[in-house]
Amino acid sequence: MKTSKLILLGLICMIATVPATAQSRSEKKARIERAVKEAIDSQTYKIDVNRMQPMRGGSRTLTTNYSLKISNDSVYSYLPYFGVAYNIPYGGGKGLVFSEPITEYKTKELKKGRMQIDFKTRSEGDNYEYSLTIYPNGSTTIHVQASNRQSISYTGDMDIEK
Rank of each mutant, 00 (worst) to 15 (best):
I40G: 05
G156A: 07
E33M: 06
I102N: 10
G125I: 02
T121P: 11
V75S: 08
S4D: 09
T3P: 01
A146S: 15
P80F: 05
E100I: 00
T155F: 06
E161S: 13
E27I: 09
D73K: 14
M115E: 07
L8W: 05
P80K: 08
G92F: 05
I152G: 11
E27W: 07
T17M: 14
T133L: 13
T140F: 00
K46Y: 00
A85T: 14
N87V: 07
S26V: 10
V84Y: 07
P54F: 09
D73H: 12
I32N: 03
I88P: 02
V49W: 00
M158A: 04
R31G: 03
T133F: 05
S71I: 03
K162H: 09
L68Y: 02
S131W: 02
R60K: 15
T64S: 14
S99D: 15
Y154I: 02
F98G: 05
M55E: 13
G156Q: 06
I40C: 05
L79F: 04
T107W: 01
V97W: 01
K106Y: 10
G125T: 11
I47K: 00
R149P: 01
S139T: 12
I160M: 02
K2G: 10
T64W: 04
V75C: 08
Y90F: 10
Y128T: 04
I40A: 01
S123K: 06
K69Q: 14
R25W: 12
K94P: 00
I12N: 03
I15S: 13
R25E: 14
N50L: 02
K28C: 02
S151D: 14
S77H: 05
S42P: 10
L62A: 08
E129F: 08
V49C: 11
G92S: 10
N65R: 12
P19W: 04
N137Q: 11
E100W: 01
L96C: 04
Y130I: 06
V49K: 05
L9P: 01
R51P: 00
S67D: 09
Y81P: 07
